[in-house]
Design a protein around this nucleic acid. Structure first.
Length: 437
RNA sequence: GUGGGCGUAGCUCAGUUGGUUAGAGCGCCAGGUUGUGGCCCUGGAGGUCGGGGGUUCAAGUCCCCUCGCUCACCCCA
């Protein structure tokens, strides 16, 4: 018998998920819009891919050893007996789409996608979260790694974030990593007894994981362990040097972190992670990414280099809150129509305003004027357009400013659009004047 | 998967050593102004006190179980 999570009378969103209502949801929209403006201005085009894939896409791409696939993936057999999985991360789907459609190289794509993982929720960690990401395929040039990092860095800056840091590292490639792993494994084996309980044997499966362990025992051992960045082959070392040089030339501050180990098996060469210093919660990574020159091949394509990142939107917004950015309120309405003469005018005028590109709403249900005026005020509208029996009879409306002290004036129906437009322009000027003065 | 904290109105929370019909502020609705929002005043609606079981004359309050939320480990964005 399945655990009953819904024994109460009212239904609720599943564990680890949440509803985001207006106006909080506006910040999400706004962040996506700004990201889109940035990346589309840098040559990246939107890719929309399914929220579920054949499970093998993720199993082959991310690696069975990884918790995201091995322990957290929502995997199920559908009605046709196919093994499917809800997308737990973004890159594998994009690369699968590349292998399937063969777009012309270089191919630069961006996405905004919900990601699903069965994790225990905690601060800034959800079972469904959303990532903004970019992936660039077909270019081995280290300058593209720099561009990708620049995009994330610039985006944070445009959001007004300042309290974040960048760590970079290199995972090497097929030439140098195997030899290094042998070296590291031998070292860890020699110090096996000093490792924490969890890693004493587990280090054999994925030795680099030990670098991520926060326990003092493991940290002591790894402090003196051989570092991959010191054992890169000439090509990887040159690539890494070019990345550092490029970042420095763009004024992007970073730390080289020999301990930086990204969770997914597909990474080669450059890896990086942005962390927020403003987020109080334990989960403070804003963006993680790197180069994955072997992934296309793993998913059945011709060997093709790639680089990209994923950025958690929910976590990004937590960082924005912590730093007090997003000061602007969501855009308000231009006009709210109050009609106590039967509703015919409200029906006609709202449509007229909206067709003219103005933002307008109205009251329904024939509420009292006082109630309708309260709604008008609450809506944030710049003006109320009031229609009573007298106005209905004469074919006019009263235009009443709600955000300034002006008098209300009668306006003919044909002049409503222009009158509202003028009032909105005046309101904007007043705000600008206040700020400027 | 493993620990800690917490569940009382839509929201934020009171609720005294168990003791009458469970309260406040905010929000919502209505009235004060038979054509006017914001401020103020008055009134109203809204609660199986997360759920189940137990102790007791009596449980929001004590005990057990359970569900949920939350924070941390782990992992990751």
């Amino acid at each position: 018998m399945a655990k009953g999570g819904d024994d109460r009378a009212t239904p609720r969103a599943p564990t680890g998920t949440r509803d985001v209502l207006w106006p909080e949801s506006w910040r999400f929209e706004d962040a996506v819009a700004r990201f889109r403006a940035l990346v589309e201005g840098a040559g990246y085009g939107l890719i929309q891919s399914p929220v579920f894939e054949y499970a093998s896409v993720f199993r082959r791409g991310i690696g069975e050893e990884n918790d995201v696939v091995g322990k957290e993936m929502y995997e199920f057999e559908d009605r046709d007996g196919q093994m499917l999985a809800l997308r737990p991360e973004g890159t594998a789907s994009v690369v699968r789409a590349y292998v399937q459609h063969r777009p012309v190289l270089p191919w630069k794509a961006w996405y905004m996608a919900p990601l699903l993982r069965h994790e225990r929720p905690q601060a800034a960690r959800y079972r469904q979260h959303h990532q903004l990401g970019i992936e660039a395929l077909g270019v081995a040039d280290a300058d593209l790694d720099v561009e990708v990092i620049w995009v994330a860095h610039t985006f944070f800056g445009r959001l007004g974030l300042t309290d974040f840091s960048l760590r970079i590292g290199s995972m090497g490639d097929a030439t140098c990593r195997p030899a290094y792993l042998e070296l590291l494994t031998a070292y860890l084996d020699a110090h096996r007894g000093e490792l924490c309980d969890e890693h004493r044997e587990r280090f054999r499966t994925n030795p680099m994981r030990v670098f991520d362990c926060k326990r003092p025992e493991c940290r002591a051992v790894t402090a003196a362990a051989p570092k991959l960045v010191d054992h890169l082959c000439d090509a990887c070392a040159a690539h890494f040097a070019r990345v550092r040089e490029g970042l420095a030339s763009l004024g992007i501050v970073f730390d080289v972190d020999p301990r930086l180990v990204r969770g997914f098996d597909y990474y080669t060469r450059t890896t990086f992670e942005f962390a927020s210093g403003a987020i109080e919660a334990a989960q403070n990574a804003l963006c993680g990414g790197g180069r994955y020159d072997g992934l296309v091949e793993m998913l059945g394509g011709e060997p093709t280099p790639g680089v990209g990142f994923g950025m958690g939107i929910e976590r990004l917004l937590v960082a924005c809150d912590a730093e007090g950015t997003f000061p602007a309120d969501p855009p308000a309405l231009d006009a709210f129509v109050v009609d106590v003469a039967g509703g015919d005018a409200a029906r006609a005028i709202t449509v007229r305003l909206r067709d003219a590109g103005l933002r307008a709403d109205r009251a329904f249900d024939g509420r009292s004027m006082k109630a309708q005026m309260k709604l008008a005020d609450r809506s944030g509208a710049t003006v109320a357009l009031i229609v009573g029996p007298a106005e209905a009879a004469s074919g006019t409306v009263l235009l009443r400013p709600l955000r300034s002290e002006g008098d209300q004036l009668p306006v003919t129906l044909d002049a409503v659009v222009d009158a509202v437009h003028d009032a909105v322009v005046d309101a904007v000027h007043e705000v600008v004047g206040e700020v400027g003065g």
